[in-house]
Amino acid sequence: MISTFKKSLPAIFSFCTLALALEGMIYWDLISYTLIPAPSMVLGVLKTLHKEFTDAFLESFSNTVQGLGLSILIGGLIAIVFSLSELLKRAILPFAVFFQTVPIIAIAPLLVIYFGFGSPTVIASSFIVSLFPVIANTLIGLESPPRLQLDLFKVQQASALQTLYKLRLPWAYTHIYAGLKISAGLSIVGTIAGEFVAGGGLGAMIDSARTQQRVDIVFAALLLLSLMGLIFVGTLAFGNKWILQRRPFDK
């Protein structure tokens, strides 16, 4: 814990320096507070609207967790099925690329028509945006054990399922983790895009602040979104470290 704090010190230091510099520049009118709010203004609005921000944060957080959870579950299953069947992979994988290339903002209105306003649309948006990295990375991992290790399983007459969960899945661990890190960030992007059109959470707060030119609210929401990102990345990093201390999948 202490070593993690020590490692984060440079980042904390640069964040504080930047905040102080910004505060000074706005205080001496070098930058207009209507464009960039002073950090003290952001803290102020967070304090006055703390109930609204807390509710919005929790709603966005919950939507993101559900969207990401669905991506991990469904993306993982799709990757496993693809790794077991070359035919299915060739038939379906090109369509999965759709999820990577389509701009979510273009299909978000469709999601509102299908799922209505509120959480279901937001979760679907978060899921669509974060799905592809899970599929792509897991699939690369599942397909990349060294030939000699696959030979070992073949000589011992292991079934395809045994090879999957005793060799391919453990081998894919580092790839799956890399995919999760990318998807975690993207799932937040998907949530906010979904909330822009379907309402609720920090996305809706940002959208409504935009119409009122309240940059302090927008920046406060961005700060909370960064915090959410840090929670996701931190949890993943902690989980990864915990697992690797017990099983050296990365060696």
Binding site: Q149, D151, V155, K166, L167, P248, F249, D250
Partner: peptide, 14 residues
């Protein structure tokens, strides 16, 4: 009842 030992130890790291 056949076993094969490879050029590399080929152990599973985990």
């Amino acid at each position: 009842n056949l076993s094969l030992v490879f050029q590399e130890a080929n152990l599973l790291a985990w």
